[in-house]
Design a protein around this nucleic acid. Sequence first.
RNA 1: GGGCUUAUAUGUCAAUUGGUAGACAGCUUCCCUUACAAGGAAGAGGUUAGGGGUUCGAGUCCCUUUGAGCCCACCA
Length: 910
Amino acid sequence: MELEKSYNAKEAESKHYQRWEAQGCFAPEINQNPDAKPFSIVIPPPNVTGSLHMGHALQHTIMDVLTRWKRMQGFKTLWLPGTDHAGISVQRKVVEQLGKDERKKPQDIGREAFTQRAWAWKEQFGNTITEQMRREGASVDWSRERFTMDESLSKAVREVFCTLYEEGSIYRGKRMINWCPNDKTVISDLEVSEEKKKGKLTYLIYPIEGSDKTLTVATTRPETMLGDTAVAVNPNDERYRDIIGKFVLLPLTNRKIPIIADEYVDLEFGTGCVKITPAHDPNDYEIGLRHNLEQILILNNDGTLNENAGAEFAGMDRFKARAKVIEDFETLGLLEKQDDYEITLPVCERCKTVIEPMVSEQWFCKMDGMRDMALDLMKNENLPHFSPQVPHEKVYTTWLENLKDWTISRQLWWGHQIPAWYDEAGNTFVARTYEAAKTQANSDNLTQDEDVLDTWFSSALWAFSTFGWNGEVTETDDLNDFCPTDVLVTGRDIIFLWVSRMMMTTKKFVNKTAFKDVIITGTVLGKDGKPMSKSRKNGVDPLEMFDKYGVDATRIYLASIASGADIRWNDLQIETYRNFSNKIWNATRFCLLNSEGATVDPESLKLSDDDSIADKWIISRLNKTANAVNTALERYHFHEAVRLLYQFFWNDFCDWYIELVKDEITFSSNNVSDDEDDLSIWANSEKQTKAKTRIVTIIEQSLRLLHPFMPYLTEELWGFLPATGSHLHNSAYSNADATIMLADYPKDGNIDEKAESEMQSVIDLISRVRNIRAELSIKPAEKVEIHAACNADLQQVFRENEAQILKLARANTLTLGETLNVPKASAKAVMQGAEIAVPLEGLIDFAKERERLENQINKLNVELGQLNGQLNNENFVAKAPVEKVQDLRDRVAEIENQTQTLNKTIEALK
RNA sequence: GGGCUUAUAUGUCAAUUGGUAGACAGCUUCCCUUACAAGGAAGAGGUUAGGGGUUCGAGUCCCUUUGAGCCCACCA
């Protein structure tokens, strides 16, 4: 059969995914080996609001490479997919839609109607990313797809909540929290980020009661003075010792507030006097508690001020109120000054709205117990094992050690509503169901808490809730088989938000380690070296790359940069792998054009003595590559695996092996029809079929090795190869329909170092002659004569490969001997163990040739200088390992030998 | 303020426990040689950011300066 001249990625991509899925190849049940070891990964569930970005593509590639690799090795493999309900994001989308389509607010339609719409939104738009994953070729088991708000997962959430409540870890209380006035909900510390801005430090003058003295406080948020309930000074501050215990008349309000002493105040900063707003500042909150200060809440949920701020300010936006406070102080002559000041604002991680710290009644979760479990795992068993190891283990541990209570309630409607009910008297009943709550309360008249749980609360359970655990069901086959999962692949941004919490909850609720290894991927940066973002417009869309270069090229490129460090996107690199796809396609195409009578037969890779050096060499190289690729993958060195495969396939197999055996393989197909009776051709035929079988088998093995990285291309080509079928499957899949994704992953082949070094000599010889040709500008059509002087063994090697040497070096004759016997007008070269000459009567320019040789001597001399530098160092000779020293001495001898030869040659040319 | 990462060829990146720097792309020269011009052959190109130290030997370990980036805490 004959393939198209170049690889059409789209065509291959459209063919195989559905079939794989339909045949159940992605599900662990495909594995028929009852003793198969499990291998499992749970996907970090992408938000239903999301669409695929480069970070996903990178992580999915890594997960798929591991999954496909392990599956081919015969593991009972599960990569479990799913999505996250993404509370705030979905809520915002639905609010937006409601406003646009119907000009309504959520309150207008009520909670039930709103959540119905959210579900509808999820049904309609929520599978964008899962569809995109199909395009990626992700071999996830869709039959086990989960969503964080599935019934069973929701049940798990209630179970965990209730258990933690019952043991006193979850509690409700008024605490200082982070409020997002835009999303109108509390958010946890981890969801707050920072923004540096130029701002003002404003100095406000407060009159002291019963005197004409004043004091000055400095603030970056002047409007909060409306909620001040004290002024604090340091007890050791000489300047203010006499006013401690007195009162300040707070301007713009009619309040009298105490001047208190607290160590917290920094004598050096500002004026040394600090206004204290316990309801709106974390530090002031603490001071307020110590001094029993009143908390005056002056903000509404939307960031406007409330009645507590006074009639003039009520309903006013916080930033307008800030301006007005400053203005009013100025009018009163109480504004001392305003300094330029760089301030770091806490902002909502998602919407970048400035966060207001405030006191609010929320649900919290104490983490101490679970935290200690996770710390013990790390301390005693070094779990999870991070890759790359440093610094993540240390960061993880330190973070756990300093863990504070987690604010778990959110003022949203989309999510898991908190399973707490209140009776008319305000008593709280936490229960797994409404029915149970009613029984507890002994009342039918209960109202459920309006809040939902932080989205990360359900994500935290992902490593076991997805396997069927929900409190009622606590043992499932999947839980037994697949938890702990083997490896988690994620970015470093959610080590705290997600990774640590999964470790904690999984240990606590199913007494297992969520995952043994954690691969922390680097960030894919834009071409400008900055993280990809919409605002920077430096994003690269994976789908565009799929269209432009093909899914496989994109995947193997992503794998080639997956070393753990951040990586800058580079179109040129991905093009290399597009070319690589084409190279694989065409190498296969060549073999197929000459595959008459051949079959894919792994037996053909077993060597016998009459096999040629080239055959021994390529099989050794193949085996070495397979071994190294397996090792690299075990270490999660994806870039190294890719490099090995690329080098083997392109350099060893295409550049050398195909060229070496080309004549042998193409011979009869060109000639047999011309002269069918020629006995020598028939004599050649069996040998040739063997050669053809061997080369298609090597291709087949290469495709297997490449399959985890390039699933579509390899599947497409595998199907074209002669006699591929389920008999090539790993034994765990012998009954399944034929596909490369179930073929046995190559490993543990024999390595023949002697053949490798002999072949290297052949390659060196050809390269030397080619170098002479290129540097002396000998026309490609011009055939040369090659003379080589070397020992008998090497002569034998060259003789065995004479045909190939003549062809690849474009020569007529190869003359071998112990010494060279050539005319003066010859170009010469040296290599390890041999001296080479190419007679060039009439073609050689002696001056040019001398220059060429001197160049080579210079290169050798540089190396010699380095080596002698070391060898002349007595300490080196005394202390370095003996083998090392001997290696250098051998090399020096070799160089001296070669240099001598070259010098003689130069002399002869004079 | 505390901690961490990083600096290697023109570009993007590699380099096992310290053993004397590689790949791809680009560049130069030549070639449409019946698998592939998305190709082939041959080349040039590096005081591994600067300085110091440990060592027989440092891209690799230690100190330091400078540049880039990240995390945590705090900032009246």
